[in-house]
């Protein structure tokens, strides 16, 4: 009968060693809000579970050269309560706070959300739009990659055996920069995104967009980066023409599926709607 091994190391090195030496399927438990559900429903039967909540550096948010380093087991509630994080990056904090209920917020983490590799993960488009990177620890040391390079398809990541994400890093925020994330669900909470859109823009003093990144969730096997959508904004103010071009670019990038949560037609239309609405908020936050 099924009985997995469980370990709760206190250092990253120990955790990496456990993962590297594991036989069979090993899974990291950051907050566990996806993993425990998968265990209970029988979808997943790992041989080893490594709980990373007792590794001190994975539980803290630190500032580094004007940016942030968010430990892999920091919960959504902790991110929301941080003194300056939501002032600087309101979009990503709002995104992580959309996950689950108040109770789930005590456990759900950015990194867990990322490594679960659902195309509908709420915090991921926001992180991608903000230009976030992740620090990955493994048997051969640490490496740093953009967030969008971690998921490779539904439920799969680019992490090698023995590797684990230890932190998310947010760059120093340029002046006149604003971010936003919006998702659509049929209800008001406790649901999985039918479509998600993250937008981050930097403006010049006149309110013209000088840099932008647009990311869409739940419309392709992985969270998308949409350069054409960003291009629709760069060089423009928040006017109807730019928004229409953004809407069209977002729709053009969608490669969704028909499933129980939405149709191809609906997801595509709503991706354009949400990209526009998120852009409007991002511009406002950037000072437009």
């Amino acid at each position: 009968m099924y009985a997995p091994s469980f370990a709760a190391p206190t250092t990253v090195a120990e955790a990496v060693q456990l993962l590297a030496n594991a036989s069979g399927v090993a899974r990291v438990l950051a907050g566990g809000t996806d993993l425990l559900v998968q265990l209970r429903s029988g979808i997943l039967k790992p041989d080893l579970i490594v709980d990373t909540k007792r590794i001190p550096e994975l539980r803290t948010i630190t500032t580094e050269g004007g940016g942030y380093r968010i430990g892999a087991s920091v919960s959504g509630a902790e991110a929301g309560e941080h003194a300056t994080l939501s002032r600087d990056w309101p979009g990503i904090v709002e995104a992580v706070e959309l996950i689950g209920s108040t109770q789930i917020q005590g456990r759900a983490s950015f990194v867990g959300n990322l490594c679960n590799a659902s195309p509908a993960a709420d915090s991921v488009p926001a992180l991608v739009a903000a230009g976030a990177t992740v620090v990955i620890a493994g048997p051969n040391g640490e490496r740093e990659v953009p967030v969008e390079e971690v998921p490779t398809g539904p439920g799969s990541t680019s992490l090698a055996k023995g590797e684990m994400v230890v932190a998310v890093k947010l760059p120093p925020k340029p002046a006149r920069t604003g971010d936003a994330y919006l998702r659509f669900i049929p209800r008001t909470e406790m649901d999985i995104a039918v479509v998600g859109a993250g937008v981050c823009v930097t403006l010049d003093e006149g309110g013209t967009c000088t840099a932008a990144k647009v990311s869409l969730g739940a419309v392709a096997p992985t969270v998308l980066v949409v350069p054409d959508a960003a291009a629709a904004l760069i060089g423009n103010k928040l006017d109807d023409a730019a928004l229409a071009a953004l809407d069209a670019a977002a729709r053009a990038a969608c490669k969704p599926i028909d499933d129980k949560r939405g149709t191809i037609e609906y997801r595509t239309k709503v991706a354009g709607v949400l990209a526009r609405r998120a852009a409007a908020t991002a511009f406002k936050r950037a000072g437009a």
Binding site: P186, T188, M190, D191, I192, K260, R261
Partner: peptide, 24 residues
């Protein structure tokens, strides 16, 4: 209730069988 083409129920849970939540 959402059924697939084989007549199997695809949403047997409160995540995808959406009763209202308080904030609705």
């Amino acid at each position: 209730y959402i059924y697939d083409d084989k007549g199997r129920l695809e949403n047997p849970g409160f995540l995808d069988y959406r009763i209202p939540v308080a904030s609705d």
